[in-house]
Simulated scan of single mutants.
Amino acid sequence: MRKLILLRHAHADAASTGQADLDRPLSSVGLAEAEAAGKWLKEHNLLPDYVLCSPSRRTRETLEAVLQVTGYAEQKLEDAVYEATPGTLSGLIADRSDVGQLMVVGHNPGLEQLVALLADGSTSDYRGMPPSGIAVLELPEEGPIEPGVAKLTAFWWP
């Protein structure tokens, strides 16, 4: 089995007047949450081999804080992760089927819907994913990324 680690960005400041949503930074609470997420990942040996990260400032800052705790991982800023649907995210994950432990750092509602889709086969009955929340799914080594194919093995939030 290979692992998919989905990490929602930590708490961000509200956009200031004229500030684009992409440019919202983490709040001080968010920085602490991201560090806690890194500690949890390290304690559970969930160290990503490769990371796909939304280009938003809050996701990049979340990833940076996590990797300061867990150590370096190869990474790519992926524009498609920002405002992604579960279908878009599934396609990105399928394209990285060679990665043993893939992490995606992104946003809701796409991440929480993806968890429900992969684990339960539906996007209409999802639990939510709080800021800095982590969902860990096991995926088969081979085969398509499709509804119900994964097993949710861990769900954590600060």
Rank of each mutant, 00 (worst) to 15 (best):
R2H: 12
L4C: 06
L4D: 09
L6F: 03
R8G: 01
H9D: 02
A10R: 00
H11G: 00
A14S: 09
A14Y: 08
A15Q: 12
T17N: 15
G18H: 15
D23R: 13
D23I: 12
P25C: 02
P25H: 01
S27K: 02
S28R: 03
S28P: 00
V29F: 00
G30F: 00
G38P: 08
K42C: 07
K42F: 11
L47H: 05
V51E: 05
V51G: 06
S54E: 07
P55Y: 14
T59H: 01
V66Y: 04
L67W: 05
Q68W: 11
T70N: 11
Y72I: 12
A73P: 14
L77R: 08
A84E: 08
A84T: 12
P86Q: 09
P86G: 09
T88C: 12
S90R: 11
L92P: 09
D95R: 14
G106C: 10
G106N: 09
H107Y: 08
P109Q: 06
E112K: 00
E112S: 02
L117H: 04
S122Q: 13
S124E: 15
S124D: 15
Y126Q: 10
R127K: 01
P130I: 04
S132E: 04
I134N: 03
I134D: 05
A135F: 06
V136A: 06
V136T: 10
L137I: 13
E146Q: 10
K151R: 15
L152M: 02
A154H: 14
W157Y: 10
W157K: 02
P158Y: 05
